[in-house]
Design a protein around this nucleic acid. Structure first.
Length: 297
DNA sequence: TTCCAGGACGACA
DNA sequence: TGTCGTCATGGA
C-alpha cells in the first residue's frame, strides 16, 4: 500500500525536480519517465524497488517486493526525501530571493524546483569522479555501464532494475575492466582505491554527515582523485548543505557570470566571495541559476 | 580539425 | 604557490 509524503512547506514541482534524471540520457540507477521515478535501494543485504509518483498534494511512494517491515519503509521515505530534496527550506529561500531580482525571477519561473540529492555518499562520489572533465551526457553513459556491469540486478513485474554498485563490489574490480567501460585509467584507479579504502575500514563515508565542511574537505581531498570540486558537489548534492557552492564547476561559473557579470570571466575565489551573499541559500541559488541556464531563463 | 565538457595530478619554476 | 601539460572520449 503506497504512502504519501510532502515537503513541510508543500512546495514541490515533481517534473522539474526529477528532470535531471531524464535530460542526460540513460541513468541505469535512477529511472524516470516523466511521471514515475524508480530506484533500487538496499537494506540488510536485501534489495527493494522504490517508486515515486505525484499524488494529491504530495508524492506517493511504494516499495516492492511488498513488505510490512517498518525499517524498510522508513528507509524508503528517507531516500524519497533525498531524491526530491524535500528538506531544503524552499519557502524561506523564496522569501530571501525577493531581494535579488535575478533569483526572484528564477524562483517564479521554476516554482517548486528542488535540488535532488544522491542517496548514498559512495554513489555521490563515484558519480562525481565519473563526471570529472567530461560532458554530462557521456558521464551518464559511462556510469550506467558501471551500474549494469557491477550493480545488483533485481526483477520487479518482469522489469530489470539495478542497484548502484557497493564498495564491496567495486573493490574487487580491475582497472582494465573499468577501462573497458571507457573510464580513464586514472578514474578507474580512483574509484577502485576509494572502494578498497572503505572496505578496509579506513574511511567511513556515512560518518562524514556529522562533520563540519572543513573536516570533510580535509578527509576527502586526502584521497587520490578527489579535489575541491568533488567535495563541493558532495556537500551540495549529497549532504544538501545550504551554503555549499561549487565555485570551481564550469557550469556554475558560467551561470553566475551569465546572470550577474554579463558573461565576464571571474576567478574562482572571486565567485566564492560573491556567493557569500547567499549564505545558507547558496546551494539553492546555485541550482536555480544552473536550471536557468539549462532551460534558457 | 579543433575545442570544450559539472577536474585532478604531477612536474616545474 | 601558481602554472602548465597530460589524461581520454564524445559531440558540436
Amino acid at each position: 500500500m503506497p504512502k504519501t509524503i510532502a515537503a513541510a512547506d508543500r512546495l514541490l514541482s515533481f517534473p522539474l525536480t526529477l528532470r535531471r534524471y531524464q535530460v542526460y540520457g540513460e541513468d541505469a540507477a535512477n529511472y524516470f519517465d516523466g511521471k514515475l521515478f524508480r530506484k533500487v535501494f538496499t537494506l540488510a543485504d536485501k534489495h527493494f524497488l522504490l517508486s515515486l509518483r505525484e499524488a494529491n498534494g504530495g508524492v506517493a511512494f511504494n516499495v516492492q517486493p511488498a513488505t510490512r517491515s517498518q525499517a524498510v519503509w522508513q528507509t524508503a521515505e528517507h531516500i524519497a526525501r533525498q531524491i526530491l530534496g524535500l528538506d531544503f527550506p524552499l519557502a524561506a529561500f523564496y522569501q530571501f530571493a525577493q531581494r535579488d531580482p535575478i533569483l526572484r525571477d528564477l524562483t517564479q519561473k521554476f516554482h517548486g524546483f528542488r535540488p535532488t540529492l544522491a542517496t548514498t555518499p559512495f554513489e555521490s562520489i563515484v558519480t562525481s569522479i565519473t563526471a570529472q572533465q567530461i560532458n554530462l551526457q557521456f558521464a551518464f553513459k559511462v556510469r550506467s555501464r558501471l551500474v549494469r556491469r557491477y550493480g545488483k540486478r533485481i526483477v520487479v513485474d518482469g522489469q530489470v532494475y539495478f542497484a548502484f554498485p557497493t564498495p564491496e563490489q567495486l573493490a574487487r574490480v580491475k582497472v582494465s575492466s573499468l577501462r573497458q567501460l571507457q573510464f580513464t585509467e586514472k578514474k578507474s584507479e580512483y574509484i577502485i582505491a576509494l572502494a578498497k579504502t572503505i572496505l578496509a575500514g579506513e574511511l567511513d563515508l556515512h560518518a562524514l554527515a556529522h562533520q563540519p565542511d572543513a573536516e570533510i574537505t580535509e578527509q576527502l581531498t586526502a584521497l587520490r582523485g578527489i579535489g575541491r570540486w568533488t567535495v563541493d558537489w558532495f556537500l551540495a548534492r549529497h549532504l544538501g548543505r545550504g551554503h555549499a557552492f561549487p565555485a570551481g564547476d564550469l557550469g556554475v561559473r558560467k551561470a553566475v557570470q551569465h546572470f550577474y557579470f554579463n558573461g565576464k570571466e571571474k576567478r574562482e575565489d572571486e565567485l566564492r566571495a560573491f556567493a557569500r551573499r547567499w549564505g545558507e541559500f547558496a546551494n539553492l541559488a546555485t541550482h536555480y541559476l544552473l536550471t536557468g541556464v539549462a532551460l534558457g531563463a
